[in-house]
Write a protein that binds this DNA or RNA. Structure first.
Length: 421
RNA sequence: GUGGGUGUAGCUCAGGUGGUUAGAGCGCAGGAUUGUGGCUCCUGAGGCCGUGGGUUCAAAUCCCAUCACUCACCCCA
């Protein structure tokens, strides 16, 4: 076979897909309990949405987008992230006319053309939230604590919350000027020397040793925040502290997307190798206007489900076993037996049990073997002799015991067996 | 986009310095037990040895290229 899933994509097969389902529904419960509502946006958008919304000098836009022309000549891009589409939708449907703020959540795949590695895929799955239509510190704290609640809900340990404020339109330009002139006086690595003009905040993100020392002594954004941003930032911290959420202030945390303002945060873990950010997000007060909408400040996060699932494995939460089948019907006989068994199958399914029967007309021995292999609690053995008497054999696969029961009493017998343990 | 490691059966892996029909364990299918699972024994199916080219009388094995997987950088979820 030479057909394979494309590079950086993968299939999620049965026992694992069951874990995904459980994880997703548990997260949904947490969202709903906090009055967040689901939004589903298209998997692809007009390319311009991301160029304007995410920022033309970001890595995502410069080299990671799946962009193509459709048959009508439109430039289309598979969504690389979730925030810009949600804000686009908010503007398009004039949701600022609804009671504010609007609290969204979403689940779904994102697409980025990158070299795959541990915890990084070209199609990866994210869940996230966006609170649009408010800029209070309460909203920031609500969003950040929600992310932490999810980790706690799944008993995940070993994470650290990194927190920063990158200012606003008023105070950031001044800081960026300071930063530029500081770095221009020093020797930086060759990548950073290009970054200084194009996207100076990114120099703070540099991990090379040449720049490490410079970063230590570089001017900190926190010292340049305007009074409003400074107050906002300290209020967010107070709210988090009041919920006993610990964090580290990280002035080098700038995040890759242009639309962020004020609060930026990431939740990292030590257990995932190099790709250690499991939740990342922040505030984006100017984004709606950049996209041609009203002034609608927002705050949100994205969480990498692939990485989250990897963490669950490390924390041995994910139990990769198939849930056992309640009932498997073993048929012994001709078409008539199969037809009657088919009816009994429907009966036990309607009673609420998970049930299946032999579909290959195998020997009784091999049917039993199959039932045992897939994990079955009870088998119901149906042969011509039994049908003639209106009974079936009910076998408990754990205890190995077997009883003859009337077909009419089969359901109540199984129920009694479950109750009796 | 850059660098390292790895590609043999469904899975995990053997196959010294090239040498006939490429092996094992597990799994899968069937049987021993003509209507009963787990243990045991027997049998069977399943491989373009990632792909393409080269060296050679001869390549899973040596060389080159390419693709994929993997780890890391960049960056992010």
């Amino acid at each position: 076979m030479n057909l394979k899933a494309p590079r950086g994509t993968r299939d999620i097969l049965p026992p694992a897909s069951e874990v995904w389902n459980k994880v997703e529904s548990k997260i949904k419960e947490i969202y709903r309990q906090r009055n967040f509502w689901e939004i589903r946006t298209p998997l692809f958008e007009e390319t311009d949405l991301f160029v304007r919304g995410v920022g033309g000098t970001t890595d995502i836009v410069e080299k990671e987008m799946y962009t193509f022309n459709d048959k009508g000549g439109r430039s289309i891009t598979l969504r690389p992230e979730g925030t810009a589409p949600v804000v686009r939708s908010y503007i398009e449907h004039k949701l600022h006319g609804e009671p504010q703020p609007f609290k969204f959540y979403y689940f779904g795949p994102m697409f980025r053309y990158e070299r795959p590695q541990a915890g990084r895929y070209r199609q990866h799955y994210q869940t996230g939230v966006e609170v649009i239509g408010g800029d209070t510190p309460l909203i920031d704290a609500e969003v950040i604590s929600l992310g932490i609640d999810i980790l706690k809900e799944f008993s995940i340990k070993g994470w650290v919350l990194h927190l920063n404020s990158i200012g606003c339109r008023e105070c950031r330009p001044g800081y960026i000027e300071e930063l530029k002139s500081y770095f221009k006086k020093e020797t930086v690595c060759k990548e950073c020397s290009q970054r200084i003009d194009r996207n100076p905040l990114r120099v703070l993100d540099c991990k090379s040793e040449e720049c490490a020392d410079l970063k230590e002594r570089s001017p900190s954004i926190i010292d340049y925040l305007c009074p409003d941003c400074s107050l906002h930032f300290s209020q967010v911290q107070e709210l988090l502290t009041s919920r006993e959420i610990s964090f580290t202030i990280d002035p080098t945390l700038v995040r890759g997307l242009d639309y962020y303002s004020r609060t930026a945060f990431e939740i990292k873990t030590r257990e995932l190798g190099a790709q250690d950010t499991i939740i990342g997000g922040g505030r984006y007060d100017g984004l709606a206007e950049i996209l041609g909408g009203p002034n609608a400040p927002g705050m949100g996060f994205g969480m990498g489900l692939d990485r989250f699932l990897l963490m669950l494995e490390k924390n041995s939460f994910a139990n990769y076993k198939n849930t056992p089948l309640d009932i498997f019907l073993v048929t012994i006989g001709d078409e008539n037996v199969q037809k009657e068994s088919w009816k009994i199958l429907n009966m036990v399914r309607k009673a609420g049990f998970s049930a299946d029967m032999d579909l290959l007309v195998r020997s009784p021995k091999n049917q039993m073997k199959f039932a045992n292999r897939i994990g079955t609690r009870f088998t119901v053995i149906i042969g011509e002799d039994e049908l003639a008497k209106g009974v079936v054999q009910l076998k408990d696969m754990e205890k190995g015991t077997q009883n003859e029961v009337n077909i009419e009493e089969l359901i109540s017998n199984i129920e009694a067996n479950y109750r009796g343990g």
